[in-house]
Amino acid sequence: MEFVNPEGLRLDGRRPTELRQIRAELGAVAKADGSAVFEMGNTKVIAAVYGPREVRFEYSMANFSTGDRMRRPKGDRRSTEISLVLRQTMEACIMTHLMPRSQIDIFVQVLQADGGTRSACINAASLALADAGIPMRDLVTSCSAGYLNSTPLLDLNYVEDSAGGADVTVGIFPKLDKVTLLQMDAKLPLDIFENVMQLATEGCKAIATELREVSNLMKEINIVGEHKAIGISARGIKSYARWFRLQLCPDCCYTQFLSP
């Protein structure tokens, strides 16, 4: 099958080094301490963060739960593996030593899967953590890249992902320039692997600038809300905010949820 046509375009019309369209939104889950929706093309993931909260019981829940709405008997292998990957990636970035004996729950749910779900999960979780105000070393971002038709391709969609070629998922700390996650589920010659990984890293950095923008924008909205809370309208604050949280007074814990 031809994944890159003679004009150099992919099945969905992208160039080999082009990301899919990214959309992100903070504060989608009103009850959570922090939450985000992250979309890359048709892949859509929602993440909610609760905590840091006191650990009250001896037994502990799984820190992550992924999967779809089907009740699965006891976490299938795929979601267990993704949970583990997500957990390790997030643990590396959260400054856990500042919150001893506390628990942070991150719930990630894939709403639409079109390839690159674990990257999208990491990006969504990262945004949700930033929204929750949990101290982090850096805003972790993740992106995948593959190698099909002797071309390195950035941000594989489902068709490209299931074509059987190599799929390299990279997670980085963009500002610190460190790799936190690297997965590949096929074999590649070393020189090609380096190219593919380089491409995925570039993708991560591009996503990082996008995430920072979303994060900054929401910050401004929240500050406006904090100072003059009553009667604010969300109109004119771009389309990022669907729900946002207003904090009236830090001491009285009163919060109000508005929709635009």
């Binding site: 930033a130 105000g133 101290p135 070393r137 500002k175 610190l176 994060s215 910050k219």
Partner: peptide
């Protein structure tokens, strides 16, 4: 950061 002795932000904020 212990590696490069730079001061980094850990939160989103002012």
């Amino acid at each position: 950061s212990p590696q490069d002795h730079a001061v980094y932000a850990s939160l989103t904020g002012f």
